[in-house]
Computed example of a mutant assay.
Amino acid sequence: MTAIWFDPVVEQLDEKARRRFWSKVSPPDANGCRFWTGSLSTGGYGQFWLGPRWPVGQFYPAHRMMLLIATEGAPAPDMLACHRCPARRRDCVWHVRWGTVRENRRDRLRDGTYGWKLTPEQVCEIVAHLCERKLSRKEIAARYGVHRSRIGHIAQGRAWGILFEDRPDA
């Protein structure tokens, strides 16, 4: 059996908070999936207010709250609630799992929810331009409609490094 790290947020999840949480989740659809019907973050993910009234308390990601309720904690403090599918508002226990930062990045890359203007194909083209050394970072950035600092992050492996992790020369 896996040890569970007790997330302090669980202490705030009294019966009233749990009922309020589940009141913002739809009944199961024909496939048994349930969707978040409460407020959404600017990124389109469900969010749940926990704590006293405004301005004390804070929003928590609904998918993380759902896993905390289901498991009464996380396997480790640095574990993330990762989606098994690209539907951000899908908050079924079987559509969300605990995972590492690396696993979450891979999921986001697979689902196309990485959150940047560039596609993986464009990033590979940018890396090719950087290797050719024919264009400056500023010129590459202008060509792809991003800031030159993004090109620098790609060159340093700080952005989109997940694309190149499995290369033998990486």
Rank of each mutant, 00 (worst) to 15 (best):
M1F: 07
I4A: 01
I4L: 05
W5L: 04
W5A: 04
F6V: 11
F6A: 13
V9C: 13
V10L: 00
Q12P: 03
L13M: 15
D14V: 08
D14I: 11
R20W: 10
F21E: 06
S23I: 07
S23G: 11
K24S: 12
K24T: 08
K24A: 15
V25Y: 00
S26R: 09
A30L: 12
N31W: 04
N31S: 08
G32C: 01
G32R: 05
G32A: 10
C33I: 09
R34F: 03
W36N: 00
W36A: 01
T37M: 13
G38Q: 00
S41K: 02
G43Y: 12
G44I: 05
G44C: 07
Y45A: 01
F48I: 00
W49C: 13
P52Y: 11
R53T: 08
P55T: 09
Q58P: 01
Q58A: 06
F59P: 03
A62R: 00
M65D: 03
L68Y: 05
A70Y: 07
A70H: 10
P75G: 11
P75V: 03
P77Q: 08
D78W: 06
M79E: 06
A81P: 01
C82M: 09
C82R: 08
H83D: 01
C85F: 13
R88A: 12
C92E: 11
V96N: 04
G99I: 02
T100M: 11
V101M: 14
E103G: 07
R105H: 14
R105E: 15
R106M: 11
R108L: 12
R108K: 15
L109A: 04
T113W: 08
Y114Q: 15
G115V: 00
L118Y: 09
T119H: 08
P120N: 11
E121Q: 10
Q122S: 06
C124M: 11
E125I: 09
E125Y: 06
H129R: 05
E132H: 12
E132Q: 14
E132R: 14
R133T: 01
K134M: 11
K134E: 15
K138R: 15
E139S: 14
E139N: 05
I140S: 03
Y144W: 01
G145H: 00
G145C: 02
G145E: 03
V146G: 00
V146P: 03
H147K: 12
R148F: 15
R150P: 03
R150Q: 15
H153Y: 13
Q156C: 10
R158Q: 13
R158I: 08
R158N: 12
R158K: 15
W160S: 02
E165K: 05
D166H: 14
P168S: 09
A170E: 07
A170F: 10
